[in-house]
Design a protein around this nucleic acid. Sequence first.
DNA 1: ATGAAAGCGCTAACAT
DNA 2: ATGTTAGCGCTTTCAT
Lengths: 353, 353
Amino acid sequence: VDELVMGERPGGAGDHPGPEPVPPRRPTITDVAREARVSIKTVSRVVNNQPSVRAETADRVLTAVRRLGFRRNDTARALRSGRPAASVGLIIEDLANPFYSAIAAAVEEVARRNDTLLITASSEEDRDRERRLALELCERRVDGLLVVPAGDDHGFLRPDMEMGIQAVFLDRPPSRLTADTVVIDNVGGARAGVAHLVAAGHRRIAILVDRPAIYTATERLAGARAAIEAGGLTLDSALVRDGLHDPAAGRAAVAELLGRDDPPTAFFASNNRITVGVVEELWWRRAEADVVGFDDFELSHLLPRPVTVVAYDVAEIGRAGAELLFGRIAGDSGPTQRIVVPTTLVQRGIASR
Amino acid sequence: VDELVMGERPGGAGDHPGPEPVPPRRPTITDVAREARVSIKTVSRVVNNQPSVRAETADRVLTAVRRLGFRRNDTARALRSGRPAASVGLIIEDLANPFYSAIAAAVEEVARRNDTLLITASSEEDRDRERRLALELCERRVDGLLVVPAGDDHGFLRPDMEMGIQAVFLDRPPSRLTADTVVIDNVGGARAGVAHLVAAGHRRIAILVDRPAIYTATERLAGARAAIEAGGLTLDSALVRDGLHDPAAGRAAVAELLGRDDPPTAFFASNNRITVGVVEELWWRRAEADVVGFDDFELSHLLPRPVTVVAYDVAEIGRAGAELLFGRIAGDSGPTQRIVVPTTLVQRGIASR
DNA sequence: ATGAAAGCGCTAACAT
DNA sequence: ATGTTAGCGCTTTCAT
């Protein structure tokens, strides 16, 4: 008699409208096994496409699977098999920023080729969030972590890395921790950009950079300085502006610099936000000046004036980092790597057509 | 004597350099319990901040946790407790596309507020990939799914939805399935945009749209047609171009239309890629024409000519969708919802300063 | 305040 | 080709 109820579909329809909409329990392989009158192991075999099952039996199982709406529970599978379902975590500052989303897309592409799911999390430049997210991802037993550092101490990751969680850092090196890193050639790119201005005969070149706490800002400033000194000039600190974090700050800096007695004849903007501000202000004033900006960006070719940009393959940062990571996950235990993505100078702006 | 080895740190340093770099086994609560000389339950209590543990005992446990580098295994936790670690999946076409990354960022923001991790996956507009990804995410027992549909049959999700997995569709409605959806006001936005051109006195308005298979393209074409007819005009099918999927296609269409005997005096571009192509071609030819484009985009205010765009809050799509999803996850069983994000007309382009 | 035992859903190791 | 048993690491239930 007990047999009669055993085919009961968990949370199935056809019940009386109970007072509580019972959260439908997902069927397990045990349910399927009972329904198909086989052992759970056989169900496991069928569900995992293992060969040694007679077609007829497999059919019965598959039918039961469909009838019950069975879906293998990856959590249990991961627990038992020891290898957690493949996944890697990516911690960036802000997914809405095209720079980061390009990296994320590249990482995701590599992850997919490795049959791995990507968990994306934004740190919002908050070191505590970064830390919490990283640790949470470790608890979820991701196979690896890709992180664009926001904080200035990544030592907290050391225990997990010793336990086998791989981590690769993107765009900026980690602090107080040794790990694989992929960076852009910030110094070389800035140097080439400013050298371009020097070669064009400029003597008074304004250098506009972001907050000094930002790794790339400092590197790019160093590159700019190197180019100026290589050109036999000296860096006039009155022409250096830092702490510029958005287009408005870039605009203000340009306005202020052009108001000086001896204004600069060229501008080096150390990132695309500043570049946009510079272009806006110069256009507004119909002012003459050569502009070089670090970072290329969407529609830069439609800017209303010529601009030279220090371009590089953003996706390559994510791609190279992900390849590195999957290499490590696969067991590569070679020495720590540091990959430098090269830059090139490109002419942009609509007058350059 | 056996006691002496029990504190052994799994894979710990200080061993002889073994031939095989033994993959360091992560310590479990059992290891911690042994180390701290308590039961595993006590460790569990401490690790989960449950009150009823004497401070002194808790200290011992915490010390062991640190010494061993213990990190709670979320997989096992999820399995036993029945509630999988909170996570939702987002399936979009391409993370590198600013439209989708804006949605992703908004979703992630809401997810974070709900202490939920976001798994992002790109379908690449491939319906098979979309299906595989969705099912894989179901196996991972995500709490819910947000999907920007690529395929034209989402019936495959029905069993999982009956089993309690929530799904919300973004930007386009699902096919062969009833579920919450968030869309833009495509018809209304296109109508308003074209009405703007009609009101400006244009009689010959070119309508440039994407592939007809794309939901938004069809909707926007319908809106454009409605505006033209509302203006007492008739839609000249010779001025309608479809199948335009990138800027180059937009440029070609403009070139061709301007070469006609009776060229259009205004263009309605049904998405931002087409708008960019239109602007490029018009600039190139220094041609006069009014332009209205659906979708606003980064730096549109710097375009070298005036352009009116049909703007909307992209992030709102993700935000509203995610809120809907978390509402469902929390148990909201109200009727299926359809949220329509409104559009507005905005003047862009640098001449409009 | 602490612990012992059971078991989540699945797969591994070994039968048969 | 199919089944049985054990157990992954944790939380739950119920004792103590």
